[in-house]
Amino acid sequence: MPKILLVEDNEMNRDMLSRRLQRKGYEVAIAVDGLQGVEMGRSGDYDLILMDMSLPELDGWEATRRLRTEPEAGAIPIIALTAHAMAGDREKALEAGCDDYDTKPIELQRLLSKMEALLASE
């Protein structure tokens, strides 16, 4: 059962997405801000990280950059999730080290296919 780390500050989004992913058979751990995300992620215990970009304490881009420097977590696929669909967001996320990018609101099927693609390539 793949272990997913969901870094998301919005309680409802967190709750909803984690429950829907669990129902699809994923094990979901939760971090509520960027710092906690880096803290939990650096252990390398996860198969994939879903990273919200606008986070308190440390934003998603910075959190991603830091995780990429961690020896244990550097290779974990990260999907950026953002409501900012403005120009450059995608490039910005990829530059920070994200493997893919999806916009909120989440279309579960679309997200699942992106997740599955990344998990399969491992």
Partner: peptide, 17 residues
């Protein structure tokens, strides 16, 4: 639109769920 989409996200997500 970001501010509007965040609660919408929840509405659509929860109803879907």
């Amino acid at each position: 639109s970001h501010e509007l989409r965040t609660p919408l996200n929840a509405i659509i997500g929860y109803s879907e769920m």
